[in-house]
Design a protein around this nucleic acid. Structure first.
Lengths: 205, 205
DNA sequence: GCTATCTGATAGCGCCACTATCTATGATGG
DNA sequence: CCATCATAGATAGTGGCGCTATCAGATAGC
């Protein structure tokens, strides 16, 4: 972690400035190191942009901010743009999403960023000829529910109140990465089972 | 979709050139449109880089290429770098991942990109003071298995052989996006239930 | 004192996903 | 037939992003 990089983060509002002990000497403490680790994790592992991280840390530092709002902040930049002539199927996808939320009794905003991102993804799938992929939506939603419950449980057990907000962001962002990797591993396994062990790698058999 | 952008994709090897009917007239067919949609979906929704997409389409176009290899290609650029003094906990994380793979009997390479990405994520979590998050790994793995099975089933039912490779990529990349959105929705619901309905949004009650 | 090191500020770099401009060629229409 | 206009291809430029290099000014430490 180079000094100029750190100063860059300070400039960008990701990191509070060190306490000046004299005009050319600043001291950085444990909170700074913690914050730096948060930045690196969100940046490298989570793939967030510096701007998104700024939004997150501003919200994290604001004691008035609710978990809900911070997550919204962290999630906003993740909605894809996927340009399309409006109304061409997006509307239908939005309805599908709203229907799913209603069917599951989820207390979630059908117009929020997460719902919108889902709708966009469904449209993209339909465009690619995979409109039927919605048939597995329920399986995905089941899995998502289970994972979300586990997340909440973890937070309830291991996270102190004053760390709720930061932990929620970390869990949301890194949890995605975690699940994504696990899904790939599970895919490998499943495809190895279906297509047979054609000794095409490190066949542990 | 502007013309210069399309030409850019041709130059970058993402899109085959149109068939020249005369030195200044090229004809683009359905395959080009399809490919363009694939590019936009992977780029906008999947968040892949142009370089990664090139790897994917080269592999997709190669009839010798196996699903396995193409997915490897698409997955490789997704492994985070997350610089760290080596051996400082990464090794332990790798062991955790290998143990998980073994415990589940997954036929997956514990040294492949997916396993490595998972290990890196675990290290990042540990760095952030969430080492205990591994306790929910099993829940995540269960969910991932279920989702992966559903994916395979979908492919088996709805995808023709010659589209296996492309569909696998699409499913892997857009499936991540889909699950991610669903998890966020499930989080909203869970947190709304835990923290009580403080009328902080569009309370559909 | 004298050098080495730190600070903050400004400007620049390298990569990436395009985009603008240019020339040559040929389609198009009165 | 000929003026206009669009298109192909090639080259160079743009804007954003995540840093990084350089520079003055100030001070710590010898």
């Amino acid at each position: 972690m180079s000094v100029p990089t750190i100063k860059f983060y300070v400039r960008e509002g990701l990191l509070p400035a060190g306490e000046l002990t004299s005009p050319n000497q600043a001291s950085y403490g444990e909170t700074h190191v913690r914050r730096l680790r948060l930045i690196r994790a969100l940046l490298d592992v989570g793939g967030l942009s510096v701007a998104a991280i700024r939004g997150v840390v501003v919200a994290v530092d604001d004691p008035e901010e609710s978990v809900h709002d911070v997550l919204g902040e962290a999630t906003k930049p993740l909605v894809p743009r996927y340009d399309r002539e409006p109304g061409d199927g997006v509307e239908e996808a939005r309805k599908t999403v709203a229907g799913l939320i209603a069917a599951r009794g989820w207390h979630a905003d059908p117009a929020g960023p997460a719902a919108e991102a889902l709708a966009v993804t469904l449209v993209a799938l339909a465009d690619l000829g995979h409109g039927r992929f919605v048939e597995v939506l329920d399986t995905y939603a089941d899995a998502a529910e289970k994972v979300a419950r586990a997340d909440l449980e973890y937070v309830a057990q291991h996270v102190a109140r004053e760390e709720f907000v930061e932990s929620a962001v970390v869990g949301t962002v890194l949890g995605d990465a975690m699940f994504s990797s696990l899904r790939r591993l599970a895919h490998m396994d499943a495809s190895n089972q279906v297509f047979g062990p054609q000794e095409q790698g490190g066949g542990a058999e």
